[in-house]
Simulated scan of single mutants.
Amino acid sequence: MLYRNIITIEPVKRGGKPGIRRMRITVYDVLGWLSAGMSHAEILGQEPHS
């Protein structure tokens, strides 16, 4: 799987920050949660549409 299929940059969403396609989560958010020790399941639980 290519990251280009998952990560998008849209100037009108989240201030143009790289985000996860079809979700209102930025890459910055995910990296922060991972560095804080959250599991993949916990991160997916942050988004109501996951």
Rank of each mutant, 00 (worst) to 15 (best):
M1Q: 09
M1R: 13
M1D: 01
L2Y: 08
Y3L: 14
R4T: 15
N5F: 05
N5Q: 06
N5V: 04
N5P: 02
I6S: 04
I6W: 11
I7A: 11
I7R: 12
T8G: 09
I9R: 12
I9A: 12
E10N: 00
E10A: 00
P11W: 02
P11F: 05
P11S: 12
V12I: 08
V12C: 02
V12Q: 00
V12G: 01
V12D: 03
V12P: 00
K13H: 09
R14E: 15
G15T: 04
G15K: 00
G16P: 05
G16N: 02
K17M: 02
K17T: 09
K17S: 06
P18F: 00
I20R: 08
I20P: 00
I20G: 07
I20E: 12
R21Q: 04
R21A: 04
R21I: 05
R21F: 06
R21N: 00
R22W: 06
R22A: 02
R22H: 07
R22F: 08
M23V: 01
R24W: 03
T26D: 04
T26I: 02
T26L: 00
V27D: 03
V27C: 11
V27N: 07
V27G: 05
V27T: 05
Y28V: 03
Y28A: 13
Y28P: 01
D29F: 12
D29E: 11
D29R: 10
D29M: 14
V30P: 02
L31F: 03
L31R: 15
G32H: 07
W33C: 06
W33G: 03
L34G: 09
S35D: 03
S35F: 11
A36L: 07
A36M: 09
A36T: 08
G37Q: 06
G37P: 10
G37N: 04
M38F: 11
M38V: 02
M38H: 07
M38I: 01
S39E: 13
S39W: 14
S39H: 11
A41W: 06
A41C: 05
A41K: 09
A41L: 11
E42L: 13
E42F: 14
E42W: 13
E42P: 14
E42D: 13
E42I: 15
I43S: 13
I43A: 12
L44T: 15
L44Q: 15
G45C: 14
Q46S: 07
P48F: 10
H49Y: 05
H49S: 12
H49K: 14
H49L: 10
H49F: 10
S50K: 12
